[in-house]
Amino acid sequence: MVIKKIVGPSERLYLSALKGFFEEVAQLTLFTLRFFKQALQPPYEFNELLKQSYLIGYKSLPLIAITGCIMGLVLTIQSRPTLAEFGAESWLPAMVAVSIIREIGPVITALIFAGKVGSGIGAELASMKVSEQIDAMEVSGINPFKYIVVTRVVSATFMLPVLVVMADAIALYGAYIGVNLKGEVSFHLFFLQVFEKLTFTDVFPAIIKTFFFGFAIALISCYKGYNSNKGTEGVGVAANSAVVYGSLAVFILDMAAVQISSLFS
């Protein structure tokens, strides 16, 4: 009673939002625990895993390739004037390579991935929920969580790193084109400069964090889709929140990864 008296309407609104946030975090945690439990328990859905890897990985390749190429090209063109001002144009390949491999490649690819794959998973699962396809699986005696969620999350976790490696490689080619737009650097010299500057500590942590990016994007998307319950409106909401929260998770994980890797470097 005392609490009711001192808490006004606006405070109650904040409290309810806070309660909603913690409830969501708790639900997501339970969903994650359920994922690990189901992922480790046989039977394993290998065929569906391969199918999802094809859909999530291979089908995302053209988009990732185009963005990767543009990323390398634009970064090179934008960086050149600043470096030229200091007479350090020869540093361009190395600088662009480090930027791409360490940060821009993984993060931009993960964001594109969240947009394409995350929204797709969110919308697909929500639509399956609305059209009772998930219930139909359950009634058939098939575990829908294992079949739908586990396969998608595992596929995304392993496909995003592959896509990032490819995007990085294509971005470096894009950078090579960018360097040669206003100069002449041989292919051999360009990549010699790139690999001379890149070290294990540039490449390894950058690749490792992409596993977490892929996992987080797919898990959040599956969570949003699987728990969607507002009819057809929920499909749009699930797709939208899958992208928003997936992208947010990428930035939060990236920040944590930078802190952790700086401890070891």
């Binding site: 399956m128 059209s131 009772e132 396809q133 219930d135 139909a136 699986m137 359950e138 009634v139 058939s140 005696g141």
Partner: peptide, 14 residues
């Protein structure tokens, strides 16, 4: 559940 058939309103085809 393997002994039960369920025809959903929307047919719920995959």
């Amino acid at each position: 559940r393997k002994k039960v058939g369920f025809l959903f309103q929307s047919a719920a085809l995959y």
